[in-house]
């Protein structure tokens, strides 16, 4: 574990806590893409298939359980909670994410570290996470005003993978033969997809104005 990876995990955890706070405090999920939440639930389930087979550390197991449980809880809230589900922007959250799932799985069948069920599903989860934010970014562009908590959620969700890139660079420089080509390439693509959001987020922070993404 290095400081970059810890910062990345804490930033990721913070983003999830911000989203839970937004839904719990406002009893609303307006501006949140359910499709992105569902994609993240798929990402965590298929990435942590080794949850019960490989014990790395208490921290590792604890965080995996938190990520899986929180993503499923958020999807449940957005689908079934009597109050929260009413504020779901159903008509705006229309990204056909089936293609993202299909393309990620197809790529995982081609590019993986080992041709095993666990490794192919791991690669699938890496590729899917890279594009999982797309429905959310599209929804932010369509729904004019973005509330602060939702904006902060997306910001920290994008920032966490940037910390992971620093972690991979650090490990590549300090550990012999360390490579993470699949996660590294995918992580760069994932972080790049946030580029324009980061720009408009910075503008809104500098001008102390409401976050607005151009349609």
């Amino acid at each position: 574990m290095n400081v970059f990876r810890l910062a990345g995990d804490m930033t990721h955890l913070l983003s999830i806590l911000l989203l839970l706070l937004k839904i719990y405090a406002t009893k609303s999920c307006s501006g949140v893409s359910r499709k992105t939440q569902e994609l993240y639930a798929i990402v965590f389930i298929f990435r942590y298939l080794d949850l019960f087979t490989d014990f790395i550390s208490v921290y590792n197991t604890f965080m995996k359980v938190v990520f899986i449980a929180s993503s499923l809880a958020i999807v449940w809230c957005m689908r079934f909670h009597p109050v929260v589900r009413r504020s779901y922007d159903r008509e705006l959250d229309t990204f056909r994410y089936f293609f993202l799932v299909g393309a990620s799985f197809a790529l995982a069948l081609i590019w993986h570290e080992k041709f095993s069920v666990q490794e192919v599903f791991w690669a699938f989860s890496i590729y899917l996470e890279a594009v999982a934010i797309l429905p959310q970014l599209v929804l932010l562009q369509r729904s004019g005003n973005v509330d602060n908590l939702t904006g902060q959620y997306v910001f920290f969700l994008g920032a966490y993978r940037a910390f992971y890139i620093l972690n991979w660079i650090y490990r590549y420089l300090t550990e012999p033969r360390f490579t993470r080509w699949i996660a590294g390439t995918s992580g760069v693509v994932q972080t790049a997809l946030y580029a324009d959001f980061f720009y408009y987020y910075f503008i809104s922070w500098k001008n102390n104005s409401k976050l607005k993404l151009p349609a």
Partner: peptide, 10 residues
């Protein structure tokens, strides 16, 4: 592949 390839990252 060495044991360090166990996925130790989240």
């Amino acid at each position: 592949r060495e044991v360090d390839d166990v996925k130790d990252e989240l």
